[in-house]
């Protein structure tokens, strides 16, 4: 199963990744058989509803899922991360891998100033002296578009607005010029206008630094704006994977098509808002056959009888649907 073609070797290459979490009722697999790769300067979107396993997959890469058992291979610039000892992982986190989360207010320690926290990253990972670190911190804050950066560096996190704090979070994430930036729903908590600014900032930084970006979101509108490739997840599995234009113009999986139809468009297209009926199955209680079949308008007996494999269908697209060739899911206006 080949990943989308990239000329250079990919920055991140994930092969048959599985994440098993412990639970009181016995371990369960939150993600399984995940494969994708991201080249330098490219952005891959990881899409799905809550419970699809997208955040677990993203957080398994820097091994930030406590007590999880991780199978498969995670290669960063060719170096295998799965199996590295914790000390080596600590130096990779924040150094070669930068991270931006949904809620910046939970990512900053309220008892230290914003500048101190960014400077700490620089001292720890790049070995800068205190003075150099604080000079560089101000530069970073300026880079992410924070006005009066020098004064703001010594302000407390609570004095920052949500959008400004997310910019500061991004400054911290890029402080060590990471090869890979993982952005987990970085704009979900923000206003649409601020969201547009933060997305523009991420793309600008990516263009100047050439980092690969893994962008986790449930919003297909945002995915269309920032991603080159897309991986759609459902109930812990990849159900479709391919170049962004392919997925939007010709979705092959009914779930991908449903996500696309549920996006509210401006101006409205006059068709009303589509809701995928039902909800994601509870982990560990997956239906037999295709995991999406109870919510699928096209499900047949074949879909209910046996698990469905992810398979290549050409144009760099892979899909986990036995009926992919028979269905015509493309939208006229998409």
């Amino acid at each position: 199963m080949s990943a989308p073609p990239v000329l250079e070797p990919p920055v991140l290459e994930i092969t048959r990744l599985g994440v098993t979490l412990p639970a009181p009722t016995g371990a369960f697999r939150a993600a399984e058989d995940i494969s994708f790769s991201i080249g330098a300067g490219r952005t891959l979107g990881l899409v799905g509803e809550s419970g699809a396993g997208k955040s677990i997959t993203a957080m398994a890469i820097p091994r930030l899922v406590p007590a999880a058992r991780i199978e498969g291979s995670i290669r960063l610039d060719g170096r295998e991360l799965n199996g590295l000892d914790e000390r080596a992982m600590m130096s990779i986190r924040g150094n070669a891998i930068g991270m931006v989360f949904q809620e910046p207010r939970q990512s900053f320690n309220p008892a230290f100033t914003v500048g101190e926290q960014i400077a700490e990253t620089l001292r720890k990972h790049r070995g800068l002296m205190r003075r150099d670190a604080s000079v560089h911190t101000v530069e970073l804050l300026r880079t992410v578009g924070i006005a009066r950066a020098e004064a703001r560096a010594s302000d407390w996190p609570h004095t920052f607005s949500g959008g400004m704090l997310q910019r500061a979070m991004i400054a911290m994430a890029i402080a060590c010029e990471p090869r890979l930036l993982i952005a987990d729903e970085p704009t979900t908590a923000l206003d649409v206008t601020v969201q547009a600014q933060v997305l523009a900032l991420l793309k600008r930084l990516q263009a100047s630094m050439g980092m690969a970006m893994l962008f986790v979101s449930h919003d297909m509108g945002i995915i269309a704006e920032v991603c080159d490739e897309v991986v759609v997840m459902y109930a812990g599995q990849v159900i479709e994977r391919g170049p962004v234009v392919e997925l939007f113009v010709r979705p092959r999986h009914p779930y991908t098509a449903g996500l696309l139809r549920s996006v509210a468009r401006v101006p409205p297209d006059g068709r009303g808002l589509f809701a995928i009926p039902g909800s994601m199955p509870v982990v560990g209680r997956h239906p037999s056959g295709c995991r999406f079949n109870p919510r699928c308008a096209f499900a047949t007996d074949v879909c209910r009888s046996a698990p469905v494999a992810l398979r290549d269908v050409g144009n760099d697209v892979a899909v986990r649907c036995v009926r992919a060739e028979q269905l015509s899911l493309a939208e006229s206006g998409a």
């Binding site: 578009g145 006005a147 607005s161 949500g162 959008g163 400004m164 206003d191 649409v192 206008t193 601020v194 969201q195 547009a196 600014q197 997305l199 523009a200 793309k203 919003d219 297909m220 509108g221 945002i222 269309a224 704006e225 991603c227 962004v244 234009v245 939007f248 113009v249 696309l260 996006v263 468009r265 401006v266 998409a334």
Partner: peptide, 25 residues
């Protein structure tokens, strides 16, 4: 204009707008 356009061929116009809109504070 700030609403994301769910069409990857749309030219990704909201980036240009985003830079002209100043800070949220």
């Amino acid at each position: 204009d700030a609403v994301p356009v769910p069409d990857p061929r749309a030219g990704r116009r909201s980036w240009q707008l985003a830079t002209s809109t100043t800070a949220a504070e």
